[in-house]
């Protein structure tokens, strides 16, 4: 039995993924010791910082970036609202050339070549002075490793794609569909690693605060407890463990929630292809599968944080099992479809579409 397991292709891929992940986890570039100085007070906190502040208030934020393997990295700094000055290990870095130093959505990027001359050893202290232009003030920082970490991420993406394609191959999938899976998984990983969660996002800090509330209190907040708490709770509850786990592993807490979105978008890819395979064949299947694999909305959800992606996943599952019910008249498929529709409604109110669909399918299948 052991020989059979060790010789299994998917098993080898999973071992490869875990090995790469262990390297990433050990060598990852972390932001530590975040301290917010407001006037005379200094407070230890964590990123992202977003506080109520007076208009025009000047505040300082210091943090340490630990880089155990001394990898090259770029630093994306997103100030809210303006970064006035920056020191790296005490050395002043002029910011006047950075057009994004007042851009609170994308921020600016300090290239490795700028910071490298001032970095000594694995830990580097950064200190920024910022000015709040109005509304809440704060900062977020994303170190982005280049070279070695990119290579590891690419290997992980390919191994995950190959493992999933190999599972589908056992079910006698067409080679073009297998290619769609490998390519689609790769594209989703690329979106996940290239885009910060703030891109293409609505109220994303609110969604994170909602998930954090559930992780902290182990309870669902009242609708007026936070500014996105009026949303139904299923997505936020299911995403809470991923937030806790990524925190425990020392990654940014948002990374785990993004990874959950990535997993959902891969699930959507595979379930969608399964459904298309049942509906059409020949050239139509090739066109449909290619469109499904590269459809922009379905790609964009991979790095995002929000309840849309879970709604999409549940809707596709609902559609697939409802279709199975009509085709094979298996009641258990309909039970599954109803459960998915119920979860979809309590994920996002758009889920009413899934409910209507299930009713139609229940009637159609029965008659």
């Amino acid at each position: 039995v052991l020989k059979k397991i060790l010789g299994n292709f998917e098993f080898r891929c999973i071992v490869g993924v875990l090995a790469c992940f262990a390297f990433l986890q050990y060598g990852q570039i972390r932001v530590e010791n975040v301290i917010l100085h407001q006037g005379e007070t200094a407070e230890k906190t964590s990123l992202p910082i977003s506080r109520k502040m007076m208009q025009g208030e000047i505040f300082r934020v210091s943090f340490i970036i630990s880089n155990p393997l001394n990898l090259r990295y770029d630093l994306n700094i997103i100030p809210d609202d303006c970064a006035e000055s920056l020191t790296i290990n005490g050395a002043d870095i002029p910011l006047s050339d950075y057009s994004g130093r007042c851009n609170y959505s994308k921020g600016f990027v300090l290239a490795d070549s700028v910071t490298a001359p001032h970095r000594v050893g694995p830990r580097t202290t950064y200190e920024l002075t910022l000015k709040n232009g109005g509304g809440p003030g704060g900062i977020n920082v994303f170190p982005k490793g280049t070279g070695f970490t990119d290579a590891l991420e690419i290997v992980i993406a390919i191994l995950v794609g190959l493992a999933l394609a190999s599972l589908c191959k056992r079910r006698k999938w067409h080679s073009f569909l297998l290619f769609c899976i490998v390519f689609g998984v790769f594209l989703r990983f690329a979106m996940f690693s290239a885009l910060p969660y703030t891109q293409f996002a609505n109220d994303v800090e609110g969604h994170l605060a909602y998930i954090q509330y559930i992780a902290d209190n182990l309870a669902i907040p009242a609708a007026d407890e936070c500014w996105t708490c009026y949303h139904p709770p299923v997505y936020y509850t299911v995403a809470a463990p991923s937030l806790v786990v990524s925190g425990l592993l020392g990654f940014a807490s948002s990374a785990g929630v993004q990874l959950f979105s990535l997993a959902l978008s891969i699930l959507v890819l595979i379930c969608g292809l399964t459904l298309l395979k049942k509906l059409v064949d020949g050239k139509s299947l090739i066109v449909a599968a290619a469109l499904w694999t590269v459809w922009p909305t379905l790609l964009l959800v991979a790095p995002r944080i929000g309840n849309d992606q879970m709604f999409i996943a549940l809707h596709v599952l609902c559609l697939l099992s409802g279709f199975n019910y009509i085709r094979y008249r298996k009641g258990s498929s309909l039970v599954f479809a109803v459960v998915c529709a119920a979860l979809a409604i309590w994920t996002k109110s758009t889920g009413f579409i899934s409910l209507a669909l299930v009713i139609l399918m229940a009637v159609a299948g029965y008659l």
Binding site: K330, G331, S332, L334, V335, A337, V338, V339, A341, A342, I345, L355, V358, I359, A362, Y366
Partner: peptide, 22 residues
């Protein structure tokens, strides 16, 4: 005649509506 699992799914569907009403 409907199968047992079909009846279960109809009951669940009804429960969803009851849940929504609340």
């Amino acid at each position: 005649a409907p199968s047992k699992t079909e009846i279960i799914s109809w009951v669940l569907l009804l429960l969803v509506f009851v849940g929504l009403a609340f």
